[in-house]
Design a protein around this nucleic acid. Structure first.
Length: 599
RNA sequence: GGUCCCGUAGCUCAUCUGGAUAGAGCGACAGCCUUCUAAGCUGUAGGUACUUGGUUCGAGUCCAAGCGGGAUCACCA
């Protein structure tokens, strides 16, 4: 049990004992961290009780505080200030925590529970490379999966690849018409970028053709339909659906280029997947669901044979599920895939990491599944995040106004190199070690930048301003970690020393304010991770880790560690920084951010 | 127009789910390296939490209305 929980429980028991005629609920008891301007670590708010108990807040505070001190071994002092009972935690509670956990790699890790979730993220289209916006999705998905695993859940990371459709054919047509047989190996261009180039090429040609038709007097919407390149693309899609061998071959070849590129990018990003779904395999699945829904009278059919669902009882509109010609739409596919995931793994929850532009779609998906009586509807959770925009607005790959993911990584690593060199911190590293360090710093900064904001909020990224390596950044946390490792090296201690290094240690000296603050923060790590899991929010971990690193830096500045006044203090502080480093590592590890031992 | 999301320091964000005088980072200004890494630390300036009402002992947080920004409401995905 965390201190926070213990204090709540103890306060409840105390109130119950002091006022046996009253009934109290755990939820009524608000326990907060004490504000820095007051003495104490945790604060019980007394106002909720003064009305029913008809007593003065300060009297209640005194009574409650006295009782807690007498009946628990948690507190050393209490003080009531204008309705708030401030409790000071005994040093021994903190030193016990430290002794038991300073080198515990499982501190903050929850016991396994029987909950199986699938978390779908990334889910790219295969017609263009990944951009900065996708990175938010990917980091968010990967980090959240780790956070849920840490919470004891079984997590299957899935990637639903959108590998078919008209947009894929656009790149194919452009390559066929203008590519002259270019391949990644013949051009030296990464596969996903090469295909993306032809997607842009398609749009350029398309625009030209429309303009030409319009100048001949055709109206714009007509021209959009009749542009020869669009006609050819639609024909290609039909051929694809028919299984035309040449088209399928071209399709497979170009998609393979893209996958090779994506795999390269995923590897650099440090993310992976347990299961891939391909829309070319699953896009027909939903049809069956829709047909049985039609047979059961849950859905209805119009004269043109198109199939619809009526959601007016949910306050929504009608939604098309099958076209008049029997082909499926986006929603149909998603219905099928949702069921497939459930059937494949018997999952309890199905999480979708998808941008907030699809909030409505996800809401409708769930409602339709519910109407169809598919049990998988219950577990659907849309982890919605705000889009990443440029100062000029949304990124449009069609218009080439995107910040490319691969370029971004390169730039971040260059930035890390420049700043490391500028700080004169390259001595004592081999070239390979430096390269690894730049990678850690650059990628760490990028990941942290995208994860530190609450997922729901949209972000604006200005490419002209590079991502900072100071302040609220991964670099700051990495630096704190490197400093700790440096001290341990000088003391000839491993990063994770076992208790034999501290034989015979007894904590008897009073903790300083800074020591207490660090320990208080360390103690909160498990509940922070719990909150991050409950709220699907890596940002909570970012904020916590930064706060902890801040506390450490401040502690470091005014407390000698290796040269502490007594052996006891030295050992205590060494254990304290070992634990701090371990918690920082574990927290950042959940976010996919590595911490160097030297920088 | 309907529905949903957002609005906190010049900028980027927190505020532990309703608690004390709203906190960090960047930027600005002023200090701190013969002592474990100055990518750091300490301090100063910076606020009508979009507005107006309401609920409450207590509201940035909950409710209502309005203002501003965004998303979405396709036989696109």
């Amino acid at each position: 049990m965390t201190l926070h929980q213990q204090i709540k429980a103890a306060s409840l028991a105390a109130l119950q004992a002091l006022y046996p005629e009253q009934a109290f609920e755990l939820d009524q008891i608000a326990v907060n961290q004490t504000k820095p301007e007051f003495t104490g670590h945790y604060t019980v708010v007394l106002f909720p009780f003064v009305k029913t108990l008809r007593c003065k807040p300060n009297e209640l505070g005194e009574k409650l505080g006295d009782y807690l001190l007498a009946h628990t071994s948690l507190f050393s002092a209490h003080q009531t200030v204008s309705g708030f009972l401030n409790l000071s935690i005994k040093d021994q509670v903190f030193t016990d925590l430290l002794l038991h956990n300073f080198n515990n790699p499982n501190f903050g890790k929850a016991a396994p529970k029987s909950k199986k979730v699938m978390l779908e993220y990334s889910s790219p289209n295969t017609n263009k490379p990944l951009h900065f916006g996708h990175l938010r999705n990917i980091f968010l998905g990967y980090a959240t999966a780790n956070i849920l695993k840490n919470d004891g859940q079984e997590v299957i990371k899935a990637n639903l690849v959108n590998d078919r459709g008209i947009h894929i054919c656009k790149s194919m047509i452009a390559w066929q018409d203008y590519g002259n047989g270019a391949t990644p190996s013949s051009t030296g261009i990464k596969g996903d970028h090469l295909v993306g180039d032809y997607y842009v090429r398609f749009n350029n040609e398309y625009k030209k053709q429309i303009a030409a038709l319009v100048s001949q007097g055709m109206d714009a919407t007509q021209a959009e339909k009749e542009a020869p390149i669009m006609q050819a693309t639609q024909a290609m899609l039909r051929d694809w659906e028919k299984g035309d061998e040449n088209v399928r071959q071209l399709w497979k070849m170009m998609n393979d280029w893209v996958y090779e590129g994506f795999n390269n990018t995923y590897a650099r990003l440090g993310v992976d997947f347990d299961k891939y779904y391909f829309e070319s395999n699953t896009y027909l699945l939903g049809k069956q669901l829709v047909e049985s829904g039609l047979a059961n009278g849950i859905l209805y059919q119009k004269e043109d044979h198109s199939v619809w669902v009526d959601l007016s009882d949910e306050g929504l509109d009608q939604k098309l599920l099958l076209r008049g010609d029997g082909t499926s739409v986006y929603m149909t596919q998603d219905l099928g895939t949702a069921k497939l995931k459930y059937d494949d793994y018997g999952i309890d929850q199905s999480i979708y990491v998808i941008a907030d532009e699809q909030n409505y779609h996800m809401q409708v998906l769930q409602i339709i599944l519910k109407k169809l009586g598919e049990p998988c509807w219950k577990g659907i959770y849309h982890l919605s995040y705000g889009m990443v925009e440029l100062p000029s607005g949304r990124m449009k790959s069609r218009e080439g106004t995107v910040v490319d993911a691969d370029d971004m990584m390169d730039e971040m690593i260059v930035l890390a190199k420049e700043q490391t060199e500028a700080a004169g911190k390259t001595e004592g590293f081999s070239d390979a070690e430096l390269q690894d360090l730049y990678e850690m710093i650059g990628m760490g900064a990028l990941k942290f930048y995208l994860l530190r904001v609450e997922p729901k909020k949209k972000m604006i990224f200005d490419p002209k301003e590079s991502i900072d390596l100071h302040g609220f950044t991964a670099t700051f946390i990495q630096y704190a970690h490197a400093r700790i490792c440096s001290i341990l090296r000088r003391e000839n201690l491993p990063i994770m020393p076992d208790s034999s290094h501290f034989q015979g240690f007894v904590a008897s000296e009073k903790l300083t304010d800074a020591e207490g603050k660090l320990l208080l923060s360390l103690e909160q790590f498990p509940e922070v991770l719990k909150a991050a899991a409950n709220e699907y929010s890596p940002a909570i971990v970012c904020n916590y880790a930064f706060g902890l690193a801040q506390l450490f830096n401040s502690f470091y500045d005014n407390h000698p560690i290796a040269k502490a006044a007594t052996d006891e203090k030295k050992n205590l502080r060494l254990m304290l920084i070992v634990m701090t480093a371990q918690v920082l590592r574990q927290g950042m590890n959940l976010l996919g951010i590595r911490l160097p031992e030297k920088m």
